[in-house]
Design a protein around this nucleic acid. Structure first.
Lengths: 129, 129
DNA sequence: CTGGTTGCAAACTCTTTGCAATCCT
DNA sequence: AGGATTGCAAAGAGTTTGCAACCAG
């Protein structure tokens, strides 16, 4: 929790009441929260500010964007910034990707997910004829 | 290609010019297409109709909805309707889920993905205290 | 004190819906 | 012919932006 506030400060952003609260909400949330969810709790915080801050958190790497089936994005604190791999079957190159649907799965199944494996294989754009 | 048209018919829906065209577009597309993309090609087809049909295709299992990083959904034909697994570490129950981010990864990496592994482990809602 | 941040309001974009006209079967 | 489907128009919902007021450092 403080870890995130520190990270914000160290990135050169001010620690406002609104930001602290949004992070608190995300921290106590079990599932990815939508902007609407966040606004429901921090209801004196303007929608625009929620959007601006969430986007800022996302860029600062505090938060991960997750899509939960409908078109509304959810956000969750990024406790571990793990990466998955995609491997080219032709040249063998391995690339790391940050795409991960664990938040989405968590939201839809209700599972509290502790482990997951995600890996892709195919032909990379360079090797495609 | 005809496979999809047949499936539509067999589901009891009419085969209109608009539907055929949307399926053609999706079929020739390399990546998940947004509603806007589809409308750009089928530009005499109304936006509302694209939405209605794409949603119908989705429910009929012809098409898979994919989220590609921004808030706009993309759609791709569902050639193989595969499932992934989520396993409860307490009761051992295995559940199948249709969530899969392969389209998203394909769109973002440019890879032509031929294999992928996605699996989750955790505690299911019933086993959660 | 001062620049970053917020709230407000308005604009924008994506999506949905009602209804009359039209098209498949 | 007759019900499903379409196009149009308008409404709904989510997101972004400009600007003056405000607040953290």
């Amino acid at each position: 929790m403080e870890k995130f506030l520190d990270k914000l400060k160290q990135s050169g952003f001010k620690l406002t009441r609104q930001r602290t609260e949004i992070i608190e909400v995300l921290h106590s949330a079990r599932y990815p929260m939508t902007v609407r969810d966040i606004h429901n709790v921090c209801n004196y915080t303007d929608f625009a500010s929620v959007y601006r801050n969430i986007e800022l958190f996302n860029k600062a790497g505090l938060v991960r964007k997750v899509f939960t089936g409908n078109r509304i994005a959810g956000y969750e604190l990024q406790y571990d910034s793990h990466k998955h791999k995609i491997i080219c079957l032709k040249c063998g190159k391995i690339k790391e990707i940050s795409i991960c649907c664990v938040g989405q799965v968590q939201a839809e199944t209700g599972f509290n997910i502790s482990e997951h494996i995600i890996e892709f294989k195919g032909i990379c754009p360079e090797c495609a004829d």
